[in-house]
């Protein structure tokens, strides 16, 4: 059953891109920082689980999520020393335990860690360091995951990218730029990592499909505004951070079954295979829900 856990495909993809960055790109990726981030996230996760007196099996089950959070931070956040990375990792994991509404994370942990690190430390995000080629590879793999449904809420990714690309296309048309400008603006590695691995976190985004659609549109719109009118290069991260608290409100307005990383044991085969496809009317169906499984990034 463990192999069916979608988080392992996430870990595989994130490791792949981290390797790409280390071996083929000049990313200022520091192995020490990566190691410290991973260690910090795993340690803090263990500490919180023990403090909350969770079972060992629950602890073990939660570690892949902490690893994903650390890999996401390593991919996106840059710092001159390991301290800001350790701080970001600690805050990211802690946010899952400190900010909860109805047993659900209020913030995406990686996103929370990134925004706090950007605000309080000298850490930074390098949106341009992927280059177009890497972005295309990322897009290819991400779309592959989309098609094969290897991970959770891919519909959110599709709508976010689609609506953001649409807004950028409208702006491009209005300004009169050639279309290669539009393509170039979309080939941002950070934006794609955000879209494929952060905004898909089923543990911190709305449960219902309608809610997720509204959510994705909102984040795309705010990202577009922050980037083009406030000139913030890390717009997507701020957009998700600012809109995160609205997730619980959307869940209240459009309730649905909670997502679980591990395939439900007692649920029927249909819901097992397509957890995302559940209609609003199925909102009260009870799926196996592990309170210990944290968000993706």
């Amino acid at each position: 059953m463990l192999i069916a856990d979608a988080r392992f495909s996430q870990i595989f993809c994130l490791l792949l891109f981290l390797g790409l960055g280390i071996f083929t790109r000049d990313w200022s990726l520091q192995p020490v920082n990566i190691g410290v981030t991973i260690l910090t996230c795993l340690t803090v996760q263990t500490g919180w689980m023990l403090a909350c007196r969770r079972e060992v099996s629950a602890l073990v089950s939660s570690l892949p999520s902490a690893l994903i959070t650390s890999l996401g931070l390593s991919l996106l956040l840059r710092a001159e020393s390991w301290l800001p990375m350790a701080l970001a990792g600690s805050i990211a994991i802690s946010s899952k335990f400190l900010f909860r509404v109805n047993h659900k994370h209020l913030f995406n942990p990686s996103n929370f860690g990134i925004v706090i690190a950007l605000t309080l430390t000298s850490a930074w995000v390098s949106p341009g360091q992927w280059g177009e080629e890497s972005s295309y590879a990322l897009l290819f793999l991400g779309l592959g995951g989309l098609v094969t449904k290897l991970a959770g809420r891919w519909d959110t990714t599709g709508l976010f990218l689609g609506s953001y690309a649409g807004l950028e296309a409208a702006r491009n048309l209005w300004l009169g730029w050639s279309w290669d400008v539009w393509l170039h603006r979309l080939s941002s590695g950070s934006l794609l990592v955000f879209a494929f691995f952060m905004i898909t976190d089923p543990r911190s985004i709305p449960d219902s499909r309608t809610g997720r659609m509204i959510w994705a549109l909102g984040i795309a719109g705010l990202t577009f505004w922050l980037r083009n009118f406030c000139f913030i290069s890390t717009a997507a991260f701020w957009a998700l951070f600012l809109l995160a608290p609205l997730g619980s409100l959307i869940d209240r307005l459009w309730p649905a079954a909670r997502f679980t990383w591990q395939p439900p044991i007692k649920a029927d085969a249909k819901s097992d295979a397509k957890p995302d496809a559940k209609s609003e009317s199925e909102a009260n169906v009870t799926l196996q829900y592990s309170q210990h499984s944290p968000g993706i990034l």
């Binding site: 000298s122 390098s126 949106p127 341009g128 360091q129 992927w130 280059g131 603006r185 290069s233």
Partner: peptide, 14 residues
């Protein structure tokens, strides 16, 4: 007054 500057929409390479 801070530190290194970099290009945000293209790669910056040493």
């Amino acid at each position: 007054p801070e530190g290194q500057a970099e290009v945000t929409n293209y790669r910056t390479v040493k």
